[in-house]
């Protein structure tokens, strides 16, 4: 099982994402934003960071990186894609996921351990969790407020496409406490908090983020 991890100029969390892929039992394959080749990977992770300096809008310029054309094409054919934080923003700008991530409602860059509830465990990236399971993983971003119009929100909720919600007080003004969503097919997932920073209790608040990276192995085996 080969999981690609894309590095854009300004990406920060590619190494932790690659470590998490390996800890989850898969092989991590480094992909560069200018690559015109997905190197035969079975799945792709768009990690967190500040790709292209967040210029224009977060993820807006990364969307047009050469590797993204291949990711968009592969995702439309069902390849599992996970976007974490900045990667989630790139997936929204690429229209692989609906909505947009805007400035946190209190303007602060947040960096803290955040409890979230997994509310859809049927996607390629969440099957290791129980529905309703609560986990604590880091949340660190300035533009994490999930916004969309009423119709899109009703569609996401009606089709069970919210995959995770913040527990407790809304950290950033996201609609319906949304921390992560999936596409209609369930292969593309965007998540604002960082499971890749929570795979070992020595270096993270928990090891509860690992489930995202073991789920992908289940998805491929089954």
């Amino acid at each position: 099982m080969r999981v690609g991890v894309i590095t854009f100029p300004g990406t920060l969390d590619d190494r932790d994402a690659a470590r998490a892929v390996v800890a989850g039992g898969s092989e991590a394959v480094s992909l560069w934003h200018a690559d015109a080749d997905l190197k035969n990977v079975d799945a792709v992770i768009l990690p967190g960071g500040f790709s292209y300096g967040d210029y224009l809008r977060c993820g807006a310029i990364s969307r047009f990186a050469p590797v993204m054309n291949l990711v968009i094409e592969a995702a439309s054919k069902g390849m599992p894609v996970l976007g974490i934080c900045n990667g989630f923003q790139v997936l929204c700008e690429s229209h692989l996921l609906p909505g947009a991530l805007t400035r946190n409602s209190d303007l602060h860059f947040l960096c803290r351990d955040q409890e979230i509830e997994i509310v859809n465990n049927t996607t390629a990236w969440t099957s290791s969790y129980k529905s309703g399971e609560k986990i604590v993983i880091p949340l660190k971003n300035g533009e994490g407020s999930f916004q969309c119009d009423e119709n899109t929100l009703a569609q996401l909720e009606g089709e069970g496409r919210v995959i995770a919600r913040y527990v407790g007080q809304n950290p950033n003004g996201s609609r319906n406490l949304i921390a992560g969503i999936t596409n209609a097919r369930g292969n593309v997932v965007g998540l604002m908090p960082h499971p890749e920073h929570a795979i070992n209790e020595l270096t993270g608040p928990s090891a509860q983020g690992l489930g995202f990276f073991t789920s992908i192995l289940n998805a491929m085996v089954n």
């Binding site: 805007t102 409602s105 209190d106």
Partner: peptide, 9 residues
């Protein structure tokens, strides 16, 4: 920003 979108800045 569209009028209905919150503008914290």
């Amino acid at each position: 920003l569209k009028p209905e979108i919150l503008d914290p800045q």
